[in-house]
Write a protein that binds this DNA or RNA. Structure first.
Lengths: 276, 276
DNA sequence: CGTAGGTTTGACTGATCTCAAGTTTGGTGG
DNA sequence: CCACCAAACTTGAGATCAGTCAAACCTACG
């Protein structure tokens, strides 16, 4: 039930044009001689894609050479709005985001979370209009890429297209699990499941350890993701703590009893399709 | 909470081999001279794909020439089981199917329905293991295609791959809507929404009119799709009838007040991405 | 050190579930 | 064509999980 719409753009279109030109001027040779770390904007994105399918040098170079615009956005900012056609694809570089839909009475349902390294709107490549909102939950940094350039890569690099397709199918698998979560689990299991999923995803993205991680969500956000009220989330979190399953200090969560939490959640990570 | 596992296979592998050979023997010329209706197995599938993106003759011929095995399966039969890797892709030719997941306590959540013409497990092309069950809800006929042949088409026919990608993204969009449905709508709105969606999908697939159609689900199936109990579904359906929104005779449903039902459901068909 | 957002607690309400009968329907075999 | 049976549907009464409303209480940050 937020209502912010402030997207603070580091307005640097000139820089964007510079980046396009300089990237296209470099020969593959000279590029390979560079130290890439100083311009590793898409590093986490490439690493994520490589976990989904092997890329070759040409694929990686094509991604690194994508023109982009770096944007810093506030928490609760909308990156994409339901019903709107976007001309850009964004990669989340820092911060956390969610996809959500709202009822006409204003209540909000979060349908997934995004971590740094995720391409946020792959579906814009292929579907004309967004059917949901994309919203940050913390202050974030995104790289926005003109959609035509991403389409060109998808057309010319079949392995990249396959990795993106696989990524969107894993997304779909997570949505299915969420339908189950929200449809058939009680509040304690729902919240436990959310925490298990987040722990595993944070760990596979290399952002922390599954037993102790930073939970960027408020209880209201957890409520909107689980189909509960923030008040009930509060009571259930207190229950999980008193059951000795986890402890919290501020936004830091430590899972004290992973088997216990996993059992409470009926959590099976199969649906996340992380390579064993 | 069904427990059938009976797949009645019209065991005709020889026929399958025949079909492969005869299809490959025909020259494009002679094939074009044929009356295709007598072998229009993939007709509804091709029509569905064409709604997702233009196909050319080569694409259509490649699909028509796919080797397949026609299977007749009972109601409640499992076509794919969670955790299992399948070597086939199936196209639903007749009947209705659903995808579902179950909790360890046995309760079932249906996450989507499939209509004739749908390719049932596109994700098997790209992900190794099924994360959910695929189950018929009526007696059905499916065409099972060896997965390698579908992968070959996807590799060689970019437009087909794009249409399938688009199809799986629309699937994902429907899952998102279901998370919202089950997470934030009350029972009356949930069931109304399910009916609105089904009416639109049946109509776009050319299987009936949106104001009067055959509803192949029992109240227990509707309950498993909406996260309710069949008893509560029964009461709410009676309410919808007494509100004058719809009437039923057996499995036939007539929507008597489409604007009313749509309002009760808070239904906006945008998420189905049917071309306007 | 004031303020807004986030968290916690309590009392009451209500939508949906559970358990427990019936009743209707549709298909099948005699 | 009818009788029967299982599955599906219907109805009622009581229990419960989660929601609502209302008020404190933290706590991070300007």
């Amino acid at each position: 039930m937020f209502n912010f719409d402030l997207i603070q753009i580091e307005a640097r279109w000139p820089v964007w044009v510079d980046q396009v030109m300089s990237a296209r001027m470099r020969s593959p040779m000279s590029r390979r001689q560079m130290d890439w770390n100083h311009d590793d904007t898409f590093g986490s994105f490439i690493r994520k894609l490589e976990a989904l399918g092997p890329l070759d040098d040409a694929d990686r170079d094509a991604i690194r050479n994508l023109p982009f615009r770096r944007r810093t956005v506030a928490a609760q900012a909308y990156l994409v709005r339901e019903g709107v056609a976007s001309s850009e694809c964004s990669v989340l570089l820092e911060g956390y985001a969610c996809r959500n839909k709202t009822l006409s009475n204003g209540s909000r349902q979060i349908v997934s979370f995004h971590l740094p390294g995720d391409m946020l709107d792959v579906q814009q490549l292929v579907l004309p209009v967004a059917d949901h909102n994309l919203q940050t939950i913390t202050p974030s940094v995104v790289a926005s890429i003109p959609i035509g350039d991403v389409r060109r890569i998808v057309r010319d690099h079949q392995t990249v297209a396959l990795a993106l397709w696989r990524d969107s199918l894993i997304d779909a698998s997570i949505f299915r699990e969420w339908v189950l979560n929200v449809g058939r689990r009680d509040a304690k299991a729902r919240i436990s499941h959310l925490l298990c999923e987040f722990a595993v995803r944070v760990a596979t993205a290399g952002l922390g350890k599954p037993e102790k991680f930073h939970l960027p969500m408020t209880q209201e956000v957890i409520a909107d993701a689980t189909g509960l009220t923030s008040i009930h989330v509060n009571r259930v979190m207190a229950l999980l703590r008193s059951d000795g399953l986890l402890s919290q200090q501020g936004k830091a969560v430590r899972i004290d009893d992973w088997p216990g939490l996993r059992a409470a959640a009926d959590f099976d990570p199969l649906y996340l399709h992380v390579a064993a």
